[in-house]
Simulated assay, not measured.
Amino acid sequence: MQLSIFSIQEPVISNKPLDRGTFMAAAQFVMALNFEAEFELLSLSAMNTQMGTAKKGGLIFVRNGKLKMHPEIYDHLSLISISSICAGSVYYHGLDKIEAEIVNLPYSDGLLDLEGAEEDYMAFKRLCSPVSRFFLLQAKKVQWSAILSTFRFFMMEGIWEVVSYVAKALNQADADVLSCTQLLEKMQNEEWYPQFRSSLKTFHISRYPLSKVGLESELPEMA
């Protein structure tokens, strides 16, 4: 028997559904931990993907308004934004299918699940615009680079298990809104946490510093 360093204990079973919106919110939090030096993570709540509802949920975070915005900050924001949609796609299709189909992106129709997240997708595209302008790249290339990077982040060993851990913690919380500080303190007590931090560093090194060549390299020519 082989024990993974990312082995995570199952929490007590809750009557609340562990639905897509819970995983979408959890993914935002896990992705944002890549950039916690830039942002203050405040609270987390399950995302409501039902059309016509005012309460969206998700990750609430802030950044010092006196700090200068630059392309990498917009990229950080776009990755956090699209992480919920990518996580919803993993929840719907399963990680195995995403791993098998990612080689066909961005031309694999239907792999990106936008149901109930159309407004979020439009917000993501707006966040990509400053990056595309700065590097003089097609907007589609910057968008798909972020999407592919996010899917690959979730496919890193143990990362989706951490997303599941956060989703279950959110599901088990007594309140609808969970403190990010308390959640992070709980995570830091887990045996897998040091390896998780190492994976975050690996992901960060793989994407930054941003460059035009790097953003273009993983994508085919796009019309």
Rank of each mutant, 00 (worst) to 15 (best):
A46V: 12
I73W: 08
S145Q: 08
L170K: 02
A37T: 14
S4F: 08
W192L: 08
G52L: 14
L95K: 05
S206L: 13
S129Q: 09
P209W: 14
L200I: 08
L3V: 08
I5S: 04
A32L: 13
S89M: 06
F154Q: 08
Y165W: 07
L112E: 04
E221P: 07
C128E: 01
F124C: 05
F154S: 13
A87S: 10
L111A: 05
L41S: 13
G52K: 13
M1G: 03
P209H: 11
A139W: 02
M31T: 14
N48D: 15
M187K: 11
L170C: 04
S78I: 03
S211G: 06
T150E: 11
C86L: 01
P194L: 09
Y74P: 00
T181M: 13
I205A: 12
G110K: 09
Y92K: 01
A223M: 15
F124W: 11
K168D: 00
V162W: 01
M122L: 10
L114I: 03
S132P: 06
I73F: 03
L41A: 05
I159F: 14
E161K: 11
K66N: 03
R126E: 15
A169N: 01
M31I: 14
G116I: 03
V166P: 01
L178A: 01
V62A: 04
G88T: 10
L41N: 12
L183P: 12
L136A: 04
N64L: 08
A169H: 01
Q188F: 15
S164R: 10
Q50I: 07
K168I: 02
A87K: 08
V103L: 00
K212M: 04
P130Y: 10
K97W: 11
E191V: 09
L67C: 02
L219T: 11
P106E: 00
R20H: 14
E190C: 14
S199Q: 12
G21K: 07
Q9L: 00
G52H: 13
A117L: 07
P220W: 13
V131H: 05
G88W: 13
P130F: 06
A169I: 02
E221N: 11
L42S: 12
L42Q: 12
L105H: 03
L77N: 02
T53D: 12
N64T: 00
N64W: 10
D113V: 03
L200A: 08
E101K: 03
L200G: 07
S206P: 06
V131F: 03
R207E: 11
A87C: 02
S89G: 04
L184A: 14
H70M: 04
L137D: 03
E36T: 07
M156S: 10
A173N: 06
F135I: 03
V142C: 02
A46K: 15
A46Q: 15
K186R: 15
R126V: 09
Q28S: 15
G58C: 09
F6R: 00
K55D: 11
E115T: 02
R133M: 04
E118P: 03
E221T: 15
R207L: 10
P209Y: 12
A46F: 14
I159P: 09
F23D: 06
A167F: 04
G94W: 13
H93D: 12
S4Y: 05
A27G: 15
R20Y: 14
F39M: 05
P71S: 05
Q9G: 00
G58H: 07
E72H: 03
F61P: 05
R152F: 11
L127H: 09
E72C: 00
E161L: 07
Y107H: 01
